[in-house]
Amino acid sequence: MSRFLELQNISAGYGPITVLRGISLHLDAGECIGLFGPNGHGKTTLLKTISGLIKPSAGSITFNGTQIVGKKPPAIVNAGLVQSPQGNTLFGEMRIQEILELAAFTPRARPHRATNLEKVFALFPRLDERRSQRARTLSGGERQMLSIGCALRCEPALLMLDEPTLGLSPRLKEELAAAIGKISKTGVPLIVVEQDIEFLMELTNRLYLIEHGEVVREIDRASTPDHDEVMQLYFGEALH
């Protein structure tokens, strides 16, 4: 049976430091999965490895039936596997509209250039209001929206979100969660890294708990519906 995305025994790190130790996980078409676990245990590194920013030292990643280990990030983005990085790291001196226009850069995204800009503005009206502002003037939540907006402009077949609600006020968090829910409803499969378990539980079908660069538990919502159990797992095991 072929998976939409499948990671087998991925190990990776920065230079001599190993962060990921033999991670295997998968995502089937139409699914949303969540990654959670304590900070600094490899979740962002995992996304970067899938995106091709970090070359794994071992293991394989297949996307849509093709091996993508060793491909450069632009090729992976062009295949439809798109990551929205944490929003504080965009192009500070460029204007919002410029950035979003630029984001439809790949041959894959180019034909939809005109239409999907309006979709992004419809999803995030705040960005619409701030079209001509420079990115560095945006608030944390708005930067997050811009980051997701850029990813949407790439016409994702699979979208990876890295802590989209990190450090946001409850009101903004809700706004973003709603937007992400809308994206999910359009049929784009998601991989979401989050600290907020409630949010993940609502959004995703399955969760992976990642600790010390390994998958320590896989939770299928269909077989483990007990919310308290998951919470206990998280706070009981992850934070020791």
């Binding site: 995106s51 450069k72 990030p73 062009n78 226009e101 850069f105 402009r153």
Partner: peptide, 22 residues
């Protein structure tokens, strides 16, 4: 687009490659 991609790369290489810029 090419000129903008140069500016994007100058400001943030990682984010630039994540939107498909070589």
């Amino acid at each position: 687009t090419v000129g903008r991609s140069l500016r994007a790369v100058g400001q943030n290489q990682e984010s630039a490659s994540l939107i498909g810029i070589d």
